[in-house]
Simulated assay, not measured.
Amino acid sequence: METAALRTRLVEVVVPVHNEQRALRASTTRLHAYLAGTFPYGFRITIADNASTDDTWRIATELAGELPHVRALHLDEKGRGRALRHVWSRSEADVVSYMDVDLSTDLDAFLPLVAPLLSGHSDLAIGTRLARASRVERGPKRELISRSYNLLLRSVMGAGFSDAQCGFKAVRTEIAHALLPGVEDEQWFFDTELLLLAERHGLRIHEVPVDWVDDPDSRVDILRTAMDDLRGLARVARETLSGAARIPMPARVERAELPKGMARQLPRFAIVGTGSTLAYLVLFSSLREILSPLAANAVALLVTAVANTAVNRRFTFGVTGSAGAMRHQLEALIAFLVGLTLTSGSLFLLPDRVSYGVELIAVVIANAAATLVRFLLLRVWVFNPERKTTR
């Protein structure tokens, strides 16, 4: 039953290719066998051919006909970023991802890459070759260029991620759909721009150390790619300074926003809470002259709790009229009991014959904890306009 539930989640793996007739068949067959044999979620492999001039497209269509869960897509224009944008923006999968056709990254890192996205823990995930736990085999030239580029990103752009160029990434599909309109590059800088945009919007980027073996027959023009990346960085820096890089994000994606209504409710609740605390302290101090600490605390807390609920009902949560007022008071008594338990417990745990000042400090601290519980109860239950009530 659990396996069937996992299979309902879909991960799309895009393999962008340009003139890769040499490696395409072997790599796709290996990737398909690995996912079919070990991957616990549903998957689809999309071979995105961007303007190949050799036999790449023919091989891609053959593979799509031979292997289940494999499809082929052809674009008339070249560009890895263009291919990823085309597939990701149209995908209905839960998570979209991509990897280089040479499969330089060990496939055992793929499940750790996508699992935090499927669980909702993270928004984007990248493989990193620069972590201490990573094992990397590549020449000194590529190593120097990669480390220099990522150092530039961290020092100039303030990037928090460690490896922008590793061809092993995944994104929650709703996040990809929100970010893609703000990404301009269609080539190799696409990855970096996507990550910088994600960080600027406060999204969570998960990093997975990977084992990497460099492909000596790689078609990447290192010098040209490096120059394009530098031009892309300059453009993004200008847009960031001008404010043009900010894009509208759905409320469920934007991390900086409070839940609906809370921006108004919090300050109002704080005002009411401050008044209630002062009233509680006055009552507790007066009653302490004639009652025990526990009895004075209970009476003062009950009186201020009833008043607090009535004021918050109208002022903080905007509930008008008398309908439901008694029910609200009775339900809010749960918050009163939480506060009574915390404050009474703090007084009970004090040593005998402590000073009056120590008693006040104890009940104020306990009241602070009870206030947080009270706000949550009032917001999500007592005065929640969307709750369903039964007679």
Rank of each mutant, 00 (worst) to 15 (best):
Q187C: 01
G243E: 11
R288I: 07
A48V: 00
V236N: 02
I205F: 08
R22M: 01
T105N: 15
D185I: 01
G243F: 13
L223I: 13
L377D: 02
L10F: 04
A362R: 06
M262A: 12
I222R: 14
A305E: 06
T389I: 13
R9M: 09
D217C: 04
L197P: 03
L197V: 06
D217P: 01
Q21H: 09
S91V: 09
R44Q: 11
D123M: 03
A251P: 08
N308C: 09
G261N: 10
R379A: 13
I271R: 08
E331T: 07
E239C: 05
R313K: 10
L107V: 10
A370V: 05
Y34N: 01
E20T: 03
L283P: 06
V183L: 06
L103F: 10
L179W: 03
Y98D: 03
L179V: 08
V11C: 07
F43K: 03
L372S: 08
N297S: 14
D123R: 01
H121F: 13
S91W: 08
H206R: 12
V101D: 14
P112T: 11
I145Q: 13
F39L: 02
A325D: 01
V14Q: 01
H206S: 14
F375D: 07
L203T: 05
W188K: 05
A234F: 10
V70W: 09
G324C: 08
L195K: 04
V15Y: 05
H32D: 04
A93V: 10
A256Q: 09
R353D: 15
P116L: 11
A244D: 14
L340A: 15
T61L: 06
V363H: 08
P112N: 12
A368S: 14
P40F: 05
T343S: 12
E359V: 00
L180Y: 06
R204I: 12
S97I: 10
G182H: 05
V354I: 15
F284V: 10
E239I: 02
I175Y: 01
D185S: 14
E386N: 15
A133C: 05
A298L: 15
H121W: 10
A296T: 11
A245R: 14
T128D: 04
V208D: 02
R353K: 13
G158S: 10
M326F: 15
L372R: 03
T29F: 02
P16D: 00
P351I: 08
A133N: 11
F43P: 00
M262P: 02
L118D: 05
F383G: 04
D229V: 05
R391D: 09
W381L: 14
P385H: 09
D76C: 01
E331S: 07
R154P: 03
S97R: 03
R387K: 15
S242P: 04
I175N: 02
